[in-house]
């Protein structure tokens, strides 16, 4: 079943988080006015993205001057010989037409700079995620799929207005704390120096405003960076509870006897 919505209401970074944590495989289709984009994921990682439907690896590499037209022809022949049952990227590596690192770097730069990051600038756009849909074998599929957290962090670096950020951080009196189990995820995230400065001050107590003061960053920058951490699933944004509120919360909570709860359960079971 396809997941549908609009990135105006359910942001691209929220969707990428879902793909990542859900280890999703499939294709995200985005459309607005006369623009479109497709992003393919394999077990939560990005394998390929484009702003059109029929991009071919051979055309792309010739245009990028990584292959001569003759080499591209040789690649097409090798691909035909292989029975078209392997992604063309794999055939290219087998045939040793380009070193893997160079291929990765070329495709990754293209996918990140020209496709994914530009999508973070879309104010709206209909999306549709088709579970299980895979890219055409002839597409410029990345030899090593990209992890999503870094895409999210990079996308968030390009945010330059409060709108999106306020959804998650409506006030600078809020506090960030580390999520209970960020697990493996936290390891692969690459932070810029000023992001580290903010990261180091996350303690579940200091507000955005006080972190801004202590780091000499603007409140906007601190909130933007925290928004990135929160979107990548590293931190939770919480209110700063006062001692009085904590005490009152404890009183509010009626502690019911087990026997009473069991009676309610029995009643509902037999309804």
């Amino acid at each position: 079943m396809a997941l549908v919505g609009n990135i105006q209401d359910f942001g691209l970074s929220d969707f990428l988080y879902l793909v990542d944590r859900g280890y999703k495989t499939g294709c995200l289709h985005l459309n607005r006015e006369n623009e479109m984009a497709i992003l393919f994921f394999e077990k939560g990682k990005l394998t390929y993205a484009a702003l059109c439907h029929d991009e071919k690896l051979t055309d792309f590499l010739v245009q990028a001057e990584k292959l001569t037209p003759e080499q591209a022809g040789a690649l097409t022949q090798a691909y035909e010989r292989s029975g078209r049952n392997l992604p063309m990227t794999q055939v290219l590596l087998k045939e040793d037409l380009l070193p893997q690192e160079e291929l990765q770097r070329t495709l990754q730069t293209h996918v990140e700079e020209e496709v994914v990051y530009s999508l973070f600038g879309w104010p709206e756009g209909a999306f549709r995620f088709e579970h299980g849909q895979k890219p055409e074998f002839e597409s410029p599929i990345l030899p090593t799929p990209l992890s999503i957290e870094n895409l999210i962090m990079e996308g968030v670096r390009r945010i330059d207005e409060w709108g999106r950020i306020r959804d998650r951080i409506p006030s600078t009196d809020l506090v960030a704390r580390f999520v209970d189990q960020p697990g493996e995820k936290a390891k692969g995230v690459k932070l810029a120096p000023e992001e580290w400065r903010v990261f180091a001050r996350i303690n579940g107590k200091d507000t955005m405003a006080s972190i801004a003061k202590n780091t000499n960053l603007s409140e906007f920058d601190v909130c933007r960076i925290m928004y990135g951490f929160a979107t990548a699933g590293l931190v939770d944004i919480i209110k700063k509870p006062t001692a009085a509120q904590l005490a009152q919360g404890a009183q509010d909570q009626p502690k019911l006897r087990r026997s009473l709860v069991s009676r309610i359960i029995n009643r509902i079971q037999t309804m």
Binding site: L3, V4, G5, N6, Q8, D9, F10, D14, D167, I238, K239, P241, Q245, L246, Q248, G249, D252, Q253
Partner: peptide, 21 residues
């Protein structure tokens, strides 16, 4: 309706931010 998910989060926050309901 994914467009209601953010609102849903705000509702959850409202109820559970000070009480551990």
């Amino acid at each position: 309706r994914p467009e209601t998910f953010r609102e849903t989060n705000r509702i959850i926050d409202f109820f559970i931010s000070y009480r551990d309901t």
